[in-house]
């Protein structure tokens, strides 16, 4: 790790100003669970760190009006443990507490978590140029394609990259039509969470749509009764403290056993948090049966492009959606 300067501004405006002043090699850091980790792997090499966690007032959880609003600095554990969120929006709570460990959730913020980078092993462990990686060294190729690709994406991939978007929280937010508020040199703006993420295409090193010096200040989620009938179902290689092989964020609006509205997003299988509208369409207006739920799950993977070792993800992913739908719908009966 090369040396860097480190400051902790106290207001959002100071933070944005400090970024501009620092110039080349400046990066915002929040909890640091991704950035500092990637610095240790020499993937990230900032010259200046602007730590935004001391920025005042950015950690509030607000539920007034017609939306939930999470300050970007709220700890993952704080939102996960909020009893109202747990009751009215289990998909949000579960997506948080099923991620990482309590230690990391105490450190990581709900804003910073949106910018987590892929866990592709070829990306992480390719220091010294061992593995070609278009994210790490644009144009160098992709070792994962044709390699040990069990963990790689099957949706949204390109000839240049199949790295999975690893997050859980962004998947839940995409399902819930959440937005982010962003502050930057040109002022503030807001955008849907889904628009934060790029597909890899032929520029997989460009992952987010934030401009230079822009920082996330808040996340907003429109309130909806679908929140109650929701879940984040996550299948992994062990019971806890692991990234998803497949996951599904599901929220339903039901009339009896009939599906009036459905939101489904997928994790572990795609290059970005993946809204599965094909699956949603299968459900709308029909009675929710296990068979229909499976048909919806399969619809979500209609365009899947598996590699050598990850074709199971299409089947597992479909079944994960199935179970998630059954769990979510079941919450209306208790």
């Amino acid at each position: 790790m090369r040396p860097f300067t480190y400051i902790r501004p106290a207001t959002p405006q100071e933070a944005v100003g400090a970024f501009a002043e620092a110039g080349e090699g400046a990066r915002f850091i929040a909890g640091g669970t991704t950035l500092y980790d990637l610095m240790k792997l020499t993937i990230e090499r900032p010259a200046h760190l602007i730590d935004v966690t001391a920025v005042r007032g950015l950690d509030r959880i607000e539920m007034d009006g017609d939306r939930l609003r999470f300050g970007a600095n709220a700890a993952m554990s704080a939102v996960a443990g909020d009893p109202t969120i747990g009751r009215d929006y289990p998909v949000l709570s579960e997506a948080l507490w099923k991620a990482a460990s309590q230690q990391l959730r105490n450190m990581a913020t709900v804003g910073g978590n949106l910018l987590q980078r892929t866990r592709c092993m070829y990306f992480r462990n390719g220091g010294g140029g061992i593995y070609p990686c278009n994210k790490r060294e644009p144009g160098s190729g992709c070792a994962a394609i044709g390699g040990l690709d069990r963990g790689q994406a099957v949706l949204g991939t390109s000839e240049a990259c199949t790295a999975v978007s690893p997050g859980d929280w962004p998947v839940a937010l995409v399902a819930m039509d959440a937005s982010i508020e962003v502050l930057g040199p040109a002022g503030s703006r807001s955008l849907p969470v889904g628009d934060l993420y790029r597909l890899p295409g032929d520029t997989p090193h460009l992952e987010f749509t934030l401009g230079p010096g822009e920082m996330i200040t808040a996340i907003t989620v429109p309130k909806t009764p679908a929140g109650r009938l929701s879940t984040y179902h996550k299948i992994r290689d062990r019971e806890s403290y692991a990234f998803a092989l497949t996951s599904a964020a599901v929220a339903l609006e039901m009339s009896g056993d009939r599906v009036e509205g459905a939101r489904i997003a997928l994790g572990g299988v795609a290059t970005r948090p993946w809204r599965a509208s094909e699956a949603e369409e299968v459900l709308i207006g029909h009675l929710l049966t296990p068979e229909l739920a499976l048909a919806a799950g399969q619809a979500a993977f209609r365009d899947a492009r598996p590699g050598r070792h990850n074709s199971f993800k299409t089947e597992l992913g479909a079944r994960t959606i199935t179970d998630a739908l059954i769990i979510a719908a079941g919450r209306g009966r208790t």
């Binding site: 480190y6 640091g32 500092y36 240790k40 760190l49 730590d51 966690t53 990482a100 460990s101 309590q102």
Partner: peptide, 27 residues
């Protein structure tokens, strides 16, 4: 592990448990 993957470095900051290996000392 030095990467937040094992928990052996757990300490408390302001009463909350964290992984000290992924915590910049400046924090």
């Amino acid at each position: 592990c030095d990467h937040g993957q094992c928990g052996a470095c757990t300490v408390h900051i302001d009463g909350r448990r964290v992984a000290s290996c992924l915590t910049l000392a400046g924090k």
